[in-house]
Simulated assay, not measured.
Amino acid sequence: MIRETIVTTLSPEGRPHVAPMGATPIDGGWLLQPFRPSTTLENFLATRCGCVNFTDDARVFAGCVTKRRQDWPTEPALAVPSVRLAGALAHDEVEVERIDDGEGQRPKLYCRTVHAANDRAFGGLNRAVAAVLEGAVLVSRLDMLPADKIDAEFGYLQIAIDKTAGPEEREAWGWLSDAVAAHRAKAAS
């Protein structure tokens, strides 16, 4: 099972980095597989720690993949020298215990949870948040998927946006829709 999370790290110079990432729960922690090259991977290799954040703010996912916004507020972590997402529902502070570098684009970082916290109450499920999350995944794969698949998926996800989205989800959906249009315009030119 993969959980869609926001991973926060610090550079050796102390710059926070916020990135969406699928995280696989393992005994006592998380398996993270950041792509190479990535700032998240560089930070984990340098500092050996970070935070796995759980949020229902779909804008964070959409803002990161579209590069519309990357300056999400962070706060210091309590048990590791890193930062957590300020608006998260919960977070796990993790330390890298082992790295399986392998031969591929995605090394495996086996991380142990050293501190877990519930930061605010979960307000319930919203289909629009899930639609934005799926849309963000599609946008991250615009160069890999055919345009008709993107159109079909976005068309289906639009139903949940139309029926259940609040202002935050609509803003995030707009960023994703703009990213698809910009990608198409660039490909056509």
Rank of each mutant, 00 (worst) to 15 (best):
E4S: 14
I6G: 06
I6F: 11
T8Y: 06
T9W: 10
S11I: 12
S11H: 10
S11C: 10
P12Y: 13
P12M: 08
E13F: 11
E13Q: 14
E13W: 07
G14E: 05
G14W: 09
P16A: 14
P16S: 12
P16R: 12
V18E: 03
V18F: 09
V18D: 06
A19T: 14
A19S: 14
P20K: 12
P20Q: 12
P20F: 13
M21I: 13
G22Q: 07
A23E: 05
A23M: 12
A23Y: 13
T24F: 08
I26H: 01
I26N: 01
D27S: 11
D27M: 02
G28L: 09
G29A: 05
G29Y: 00
W30T: 00
L32F: 04
P34F: 00
F35C: 03
R36K: 08
P37Q: 00
S38A: 06
S38L: 06
T39I: 02
T40C: 07
T40L: 14
L41T: 00
L41S: 01
E42G: 12
F44T: 02
A46S: 13
T47V: 14
T47W: 00
R48I: 13
R48S: 08
R48M: 05
C49F: 04
C49E: 04
G50E: 04
G50Y: 03
G50Q: 04
F54R: 02
T55W: 06
T55D: 05
T55N: 07
T55P: 07
D56C: 03
A58N: 10
R59A: 15
R59V: 00
V60S: 07
V60R: 10
V60K: 09
F61M: 14
F61L: 15
A62Y: 07
G63N: 09
G63L: 12
C64A: 15
C64M: 15
V65Y: 07
V65T: 05
T66Q: 11
T66E: 14
T66K: 11
T66F: 11
K67Y: 13
K67S: 11
R68F: 08
Q70H: 04
Q70C: 06
W72G: 05
P73Y: 04
P73K: 11
P73Q: 13
P73A: 15
P73G: 05
P73I: 02
E75W: 09
P76C: 11
P76H: 09
P76L: 13
P76G: 08
A77H: 04
A77M: 06
A77K: 03
L78A: 14
L78S: 09
A79K: 06
A79G: 02
P81W: 00
P81A: 10
S82D: 03
V83Q: 01
L85C: 07
L85W: 03
A86D: 03
A86C: 01
G87H: 07
A88T: 02
A90M: 11
H91C: 15
E93W: 01
E95T: 15
E95A: 01
V96F: 00
V96S: 01
V96E: 00
E97D: 12
E97G: 11
I99F: 01
D100I: 10
E103P: 06
